[in-house]
Design a binder for these strands. Sequence first.
DNA 1: AATGAATGAGATTTCATTCAT
DNA 2: GATGAATGAAATCTCATTCAT
Lengths: 184, 184, 184, 184
Amino acid sequence: MGSERGSNDTGRRELIAATALGVIIAHGVYRTTYRKIAEAAAVPLGSVTYYFKTLEDVVCSAFEGLMATVSARYAAALDAAEDQSAACDAVTELVCGDSFASEGELVAIYELYAFSNHNDRAHRLMARWLALSRVSLSRHFSVEASQAIDAFVEGRLIHRPLETVELDRTAVRRAITAIALALP
Amino acid sequence: MGSERGSNDTGRRELIAATALGVIIAHGVYRTTYRKIAEAAAVPLGSVTYYFKTLEDVVCSAFEGLMATVSARYAAALDAAEDQSAACDAVTELVCGDSFASEGELVAIYELYAFSNHNDRAHRLMARWLALSRVSLSRHFSVEASQAIDAFVEGRLIHRPLETVELDRTAVRRAITAIALALP
Amino acid sequence: MGSERGSNDTGRRELIAATALGVIIAHGVYRTTYRKIAEAAAVPLGSVTYYFKTLEDVVCSAFEGLMATVSARYAAALDAAEDQSAACDAVTELVCGDSFASEGELVAIYELYAFSNHNDRAHRLMARWLALSRVSLSRHFSVEASQAIDAFVEGRLIHRPLETVELDRTAVRRAITAIALALP
Amino acid sequence: MGSERGSNDTGRRELIAATALGVIIAHGVYRTTYRKIAEAAAVPLGSVTYYFKTLEDVVCSAFEGLMATVSARYAAALDAAEDQSAACDAVTELVCGDSFASEGELVAIYELYAFSNHNDRAHRLMARWLALSRVSLSRHFSVEASQAIDAFVEGRLIHRPLETVELDRTAVRRAITAIALALP
DNA sequence: AATGAATGAGATTTCATTCAT
DNA sequence: GATGAATGAAATCTCATTCAT
């Protein structure tokens, strides 16, 4: 009975951005198109271009949503730790467990890394994310240890899907602790 | 006198692949096109499509060239080390110095990471590269230490362009040594 | 305190039409859009479409405003002339001076000429304008001289911006007088 | 049976430009689109965009074709005249007869006038056309008379389709002669 | 009355790809 | 083997227009 025009509801923009993240994960930024996003979100093509003037705009928004989710988890895990030992446990869990990022989210993070070299907004997002993770780590580690541990976490997340032999939790824990002690 | 047609010379294929890498670095895979490559290489469009039947074919070939270069450097640096201490020095240089990869090559490496999630050939290339770096590291470190150090290197390379305060060489050296000792 | 909605004031319609003329002058009819007009007039897009149901409607209204201005000037100049000699002076001034139409108005007039071949309302406007100018001229010249002088004026206005050597006032005056005398 | 690829024939470009002129005449520049041109020329859309990178490119090419035709006629008519009197006859024929430009060509000329204010290439074309017509006239008239007569011709051509009472040949002839004599 | 939201249609344009030569 | 010409398909994006409010 009602027309489809007019203020349909709230959250349309967010729905589109969230759906776009899924498209990026499934196809990569290089094959992400307005059309695929519209189809996946089950909204008219014109609706996507209405909310997002350029494709890079949608892509960035999708990445911003991802970063909000992921950095919240990162911060929560570390903020909950009461001492450095607990913080080492938390980092180990981030690296080895499933609590930090799903398989798909990891793929999206790769895409963001690549994309950020060609897009300023994404680049700033990355820089923000880096700064945030450092703040969380700095509550428990020296600045230098935070940098090193962060790098280790980053690298592990990238290598994980390619690894043939899984690095076990104990080893990860030991490496983190060693870094923390080496850079007091 | 000679026609401009015909076998211009050997190496045309290689020229195109090498040029493609430059295009990828400048624009990202998501904006890499046959046309941009042809223009950058100053060859006819038909020449690019003649040597590379699909665009993904050129992209993968470009990445293969990159990996050949970069993994050779990685291996050379580690093979030259005579003991674990020298290996730690070598890794430190890889991470902090300019000898491993240029700014542009780093950008290309992230592109490859992202691309590999959506392309089998690139995925296999990545896996091969990971395996190779492990072999190089394993000559000096335990398997577990190799995995951990490799992750650390990876993460540092990603963070380096974003870092506001540069992590100094001494700290890097110390972190690597600590990992090596912690995972004997 | 008052809402921003509601009857903002009278003259909104006129403001939009007048602004549209500026857009036409700046971009040409072929690149005139509702959106450009709305932006230039600093009114909401919906406001433009509210007052003018179709784009051709705005364009015609803009042209009507232009013609009102311009034909008033034309008529005033000729009505003020007391005899044929003064009328020749007046026409000379219309052709050579700045009093008849600004640079922008001239551009708009050519747009109207072109547009009138594809739009009935504009065509009728043109015909009206032609008739009016003839009435003004006929007060001082024969019908045939009026036609000829009007044509001469028209052509001069078109050629003026393209002329490399400016036709001097004396020559124009002499041509007009000659036509007037030749067609008594 | 053959494929549609490969060198189809010559003149494809010219065919498209000529067809574009027809579309401009029928719809006006402001409603001329790649699609309409392709359909009218019965060639694939991609063919039009292949030969003409931008729409303004097609439009200009169409106008260039028109000008070539029309200025050739103009020059021919005047070059054939043996003395000033014959030149006056020739100009009269240009203005009153059908030999100079068809109804459609006149419409296209209006379009060119309007378009030239928003496009440099078209502007240069107009300037060239003006210069050419002056050269033709200057063979028979003084520079000042040429300017004036050219303006008269221009204005007549514009007014002709709007005129309710046709200006007769005798009057036109008399006006031209008068101008020629007034500006020796 | 006035406007923001929304959308379908179509515009320009880019591009991978194919094929005759 | 190599390439210019050509094209179909789709991509991004713009826009007139409509409607709920």
